[in-house]
Design a binder for these strands. Structure first.
Lengths: 319, 319
DNA sequence: TTGAAAGCGCTAACAT
DNA sequence: ATGTTAGCGCTTTCAA
């Protein structure tokens, strides 16, 4: 495999000149440039990027931390990230964590080791302080509201989103409202819980802890939820559901056990996935792809440190 | 940021000794090791992996080429790949191509530039010969049957899978069988087409080109398919569908327009996704995750060059 | 406009 | 068991 040294020798110029040609620098005469180009052609020369990485200290690689890549929510986010990465000629290193702290730490470690230029954390298990401490080694972007100016962030205002879903259900006559989340200790779940609590308090409704369903993430979880619902003596009349996949699952199973939607049970999903549109499921639209694009631009320092996205209610036939 | 030189100075040893400690090599006395370890601690030293990459010529990075990361089929495959990557302490560079040749070439280029140690191509648009020519620069694994010994491959025997689905439908009394694919010019679609043709010929059934549906990939495509079906004068009585997502979409929409499943239309999906299980959709089970794991091991040269996986029919309630 | 030379931070052959 | 040293292939400063 040829190196610039070989090219230099072959073209009868210095390595500096070769490097200049390679990097489109000025101050190279037409003749020498041509000579170098010919040498490149002849030897089928290809740059060893690792040398460049060592020299420049950058790799054109951005790490993306996410718990699962097989969920439409993260897949959509990833799509936006990938779009901008491609645009800026960066590649993405995928770090699937399954919410294992160990794996998140590996990602942070890669930043520290300079294997990646920046890190995007779509969802985390690690402590925020730990993550923040790694900003010393490169830009880190997270998907939640943060304090301080070390981390960049782009996130959904889940509190507000949840409030508007609640308000809508309340307006349409529901008083027994429940909801589901993917993991109770997640950041967005906490916001949802706060919105729920505050809303119930404002309307002087009782807070029903049995109306909160945990571990609902995939389509098939909808079945579990319907089963649980069926066993309740006093089930909710409306549900705000983790995402459209679970909502679709609920929708699919509910009919079988005689739970008619929306008569007996109103549901609102999240994300406004094409699936929700097709099935006529009311949903909170979230600009996931746009958010993903923003995340990447932030990782490159090309955007403001802080960006909130708002969800909007899409009314369909399930409320 | 400290370097091994700094450590050497601080610990009063040579860089070699430091390097040995860093890489767990033998021949370092307990005392010196301790000294080095202390220096590491003190300086919060971290290896610059780019230097290692340059020196060793390897990056512990494997590229994964796939058209979309937001489809369950590829997400599942990716899961298996990621599992093994983690096990072997490799990271994955994700290259989403949208089936654009330009992007696939970028991936090949990364291999050539030594930015990745190996490349896994889950689905391609590029010419196989072009891909093969890059094996010069590192191992490449693809998901289809190949000739020659340059490329490794792990793949589903789609011909056989399709034949058994057809046989099953035929046995249950269907003569008007149609099918759908995601893209007609894809490798697996060609195998399916061959199986279809051969089967019809064997049973002396007419080959109905209007029974072949293209561009069916996502859940929401099921709606399109049902619409098309509804407009046909002489629609098929059974369908072998691209994958379980589309099958679920068909299932969801069919009822609305009076197409009862399986009475009026029998369907068989592919992949045996949890969704199919939940909805009672008959499906061809494919060991996707296992295949993903295999792909990665092949990329590392730890497995045979060639591996066929077989699909198995899971009978549920849609036939 | 060109080139010599000094690294980037690490590994490993070789010498001791 | 330990150290010296020569690179890995490139970029970039500095001098010409």
């Amino acid at each position: 495999m040829a190196t610039i040294k070989d090219l230099a020798k072959l073209a009868g110029v210095s390595v500096t000149t070769v490097s200049r040609v390679l990097n489109d620098h000025p101050y190279v005469s037409k003749e020498k440039r041509k000579l170098v180009l010919e040498a490149i052609e002849q030897t089928k020369y290809e740059k060893n990027v690792n040398a460049v990485h060592l020299k420049t200290g950058r790799t054109q690689l951005v790490g993306v931390v996410l718990p699962f890549s097989d969920h439409p929510y993260f897949a959509q986010l990833l799509k936006g990230i990938a779009k901008q990465a491609f645009k800026h000629n960066y590649k993405l290193v995928l770090i699937q964590t399954d919410y294992q702290e160990k794996r998140e730490k590996e990602a942070l470690h890669m930043l520290r080791q300079k294997q990646i230029d920046a890190l995007i954390i779509c969802s985390r298990s690690c402590d925020l302080d730990l993550i923040t401490s790694y900003t010393l080694y490169g830009p880190i972007v997270v998907c939640e509201k943060v304090h301080g100016d070390k981390l960049s962030s782009a996130y959904i205002d889940h509190y507000q989103a949840f409030q508007s879903a609640l308000a809508y259900l309340y307006e349409t006559g529901h008083q027994k409202i429940g909801y589901s989340v993917s993991r109770l200790d997640g950041t967005s779940s906490k916001e949802r819980a706060a919105a729920y609590r505050d809303f119930l308090a404002a309307k002087e409704l009782p807070c029903r802890l049995d109306y909160v369903f945990d571990k609902m993430l995939y389509f098939e979880d909808g079945e579990t939820m319907v089963t649980q619902l069926k066993q309740m003596e006093d089930p909710p009349s409306a549900l705000i559901i983790t995402n459209d996949q679970v909502a679709a699952g609920v929708m699919t199973c509910a009919g079988r056990v005689g739970i008619n939607i929306p008569e007996k049970l109103a549901i609102i999903g999240f994300d406004d996935h094409p699936m929700a549109q097709m099935m006529g499921i009311s949903s909170m639209h979230i600009p996931l792809e746009e958010m993903g694009e923003h995340l990447f631009k932030q990782a490159l320092g090309k955007e403001s440190k802080d960006k909130v996205f708002h969800a909007t209610l899409i009314k369909r036939e399930t409320v």
